[in-house]
Structures are given as C-alpha cells and as structure tokens.
C-alpha cells in the first residue's frame, strides 16, 4: 500500500497575463522506505510539485488534485487546519540552499529547540524534570550526532554564517528528522557541495531511509551522483511527468525521447574517452508556459515526432515504467548510433 498517493495534481499560478497552468496532472505514489528522484530541466515545475505536497500557501498559487492520500487518510476531505497538522507531523521539507533557509539572526541552538516536539502544558512535572536535567540540549545533541556532526558544542553556539555549507545541510537534516517524519522532501540537497560532503549527505539520507523506513523524494539534476541512491526515477518536462520507472528500466531502456537524451548526455559526460571532445546535445528550447503546444510538449524538439504527436499523449503503463509518448523507443535504442 502506498504511503503517499497523489492523483492528477495541478498547480496554477495567477499572473498579470491570466492564470498559467505550470504543473499539469502529475500523479505520484511512494511506498515506505523507498527513494524517488525527480529530475528535469530547470523551470519544469519540480520545486512546485514539492511545495504542492507540503501545501505551502501563497496568495497567487492554486493547487488542485483528484486524490491526495497520506497513510490512507484522505486529506482533501479535511479542513485546512487539520490537513496542515497531519502534513506537519508526517512530512518534512528541506529547501534549496541550506544557508539561506536557516535564520541568519538566530543561533543554531535556538533554531533546533524550536522544531523539537513540545511537552504539553499540563505535564508540568515532566517539564520541571526536563529543566533540571537539561533534556532539551541533550536531545539536540543526540539529533546532531545522528546527522553526523561530532563537535556539537561549536555548532550549537554558532550562527549559520559561521558554518560551512555541509554543516548547514546536516543541521537542516537534523531539524527535519526531529519530528520523525514519514516522508522527507529534499530540493537539490547536494548541489554546490564539495565532493566528500556530497557522499556524506547521501550516506546520511540513505541511513535514515533504511533504518527508519523514511520515504524520500529528492530533486536532483545530477543524475549521475544519485544513480545508485534512488530506487525510482521520474523525469519532468514542461510541467508533466514524461517518464517514471525503476532505475534498471529507465537507464537500460528509456521509452521517452527526452529521458533518453538526458541519459545519453549524462553518459557522454562520464565517458573518460570523451575528454576535450564535443558531445551531441538536444537542440531547441523548453516551451514557454504562456504558449504551450497543444499536442506533445516535447514535440518541437523531438526527432521522432510525427503527425500523431499533435495530440496530447496519455500515460501508458509499461512493464516497469510509465511514459507519456505515442512512439516509445524500442529496447536498446539508447546505445544505437543514429
């Protein structure tokens, strides 16, 4: 049974030129303890999907969905207050750029205490006991230790600007797992980190997903770095999920031409024989949300496009993957030279 089940999630944004549909009918399911990676060009709506899952309220954004189930509870039938409570308890979100998402004017100590679960006011004996034993600090230190920070006293007493990027990222992870969430959402967690720090952060997240059965949805464009980290991959293009499937299926036999082009670029970049050589790349540009094509959104850049591509393709269920294409690529098309 799926932990999170979203069907036909749509995100619209009000602009001065009317309402634009940015995320168009995205369906996601995730099972406990699994890791799903979302990849795609910048501006394809990956971050908006994350914000929609968190239901972050902004005045100019409209969310709608046909189904939104978390742990078999239908969130669409609840009031917004109850919904926010359930989401806050079960889902944690780590945004892009850890340094910017921490409050620069507060010490790390204060920020960690803020997210730790509060003790109810009527349990005042527990509260007094905790005050004497300094439990708050002990819990914070334990959290930091679990996220791989050893010199806790320096970290707790410093401001975000005094820490490096990895340390900030680890503090963010510690804060996110403080409420023991069932789902962890990560927006570009390893970009701009150094080589060893990337490995540390990925190892830490892997530990959480294996030990605590936390499901992780991770946005990353560096698909080479998270290849063995994620169990499933979903690729987005112009607000739609164009292909989704298990790692083996997607990297061996991609069906959608866009996925194939991304994987081919990634492989060519990683080929040591290709040093100082030009790589064949996809031409054309990402469509504008104001003038979205009627048919297949990838049609203008696709070299296999035919007349039927003027109609919007529906999601086809394959054996280990789902794709949105009229003419899926055959097995082994990734490695053939044409």
């Amino acid at each position: 049974m799926a932990l999170l089940d979203i069907r036909n999630l749509t995100v619209k944004i009000k602009t001065s030129e009317g309402i634009l549909t940015i995320v168009d009918k995205v369906s996601l399911t995730i099972n406990p303890g699994k890791i799903l990676a979302l990849a795609g060009a910048s501006g394809s709506g990956k971050s908006l999907v994350m914000q929609a899952i968190m239901m972050l309220r902004r005045d100019n954004v409209i969310y709608s969905a046909d189904r939104f189930k978390l742990d078999d509870k239908d969130l669409l039938k609840l009031s917004s207050h109850q919904r926010r409570k359930i989401i806050g308890e079960n889902i944690s979100f780590i945004m892009q750029e850890p340094k910017r998402s921490l409050d620069p004017s507060l010490k790390i100590k204060t920020q960690i205490y803020e997210v730790m679960p509060k003790i109810k006011w009527y349990r005042f004996f527990t509260r007094i006991k905790n005050l004497i034993k300094n439990t708050k600090r002990q819990t914070a230190i334990a959290l930091l230790h679990r996220s791989g920070i050893k010199d806790h006293s320096r970290i707790l007493n410093s401001y975000p600007s005094q820490l490096s990027d990895v340390e900030c990222q680890k503090v963010m992870i510690a804060m996110a797992v403080a409420s023991e969430p069932k789902i962890l959402l990560l927006d570009e967690p390893i970009v701009n980190l150094e080589i060893a720090s990337r490995f540390q952060v990925l190892k830490l997240l892997d530990k959480y997903s294996k030990n605590d059965e936390t499901s992780i949805i991770i946005i990353s464009n560096d698909i080479a770095s998270i290849y063995n980290f994620a169990d499933e991959f979903a690729f987005m293009y112009a607000g739609q999920i164009v292909e989704r499937g298990t790692r083996e299926q997607i990297f061996k036999n991609p069906r959608h031409p866009y996925t194939a082009s991304l994987i081919r670029s990634m492989m060519e970049m990683n080929n040591p024989d290709n040093a100082k050589k030009f790589i064949p790349v996809l031409t054309g540009k990402h469509p504008d949300y104001k003038h979205m094509p009627i048919g297949c959104r990838f049609g203008a850049r696709c070299r296999y496009a035919k007349r039927r591509c003027n109609n919007m393709p529906e999601i086809t269920m394959g054996k280990n993957s789902q794709y949105r294409c009229h003419f899926p690529l055959p097995d082994g098309a990734l490695y053939s030279d044409d």
């Binding site: 464009n221 990634m266 970049m269 100082k276 790589i279």
Partner: peptide, 21 residues
C-alpha cells in the same frame, strides 16, 4: 568559480560544448 554544476545534464553538456568551442 563553481559555475557549471547545478544544471540538468543537457544544459551542462551544452555549456561544456560552448566552452570547448
């Protein structure tokens, strides 16, 4: 300074091609 990472593979390959050219 660290300016080519954080792009998707296609764009990264594009920028690399441009630098090579």
């Amino acid at each position: 300074n660290k300016s080519i990472s954080s792009f998707d593979p296609n764009l990264r390959a594009h920028i690399c091609n441009m630098i090579l050219r």
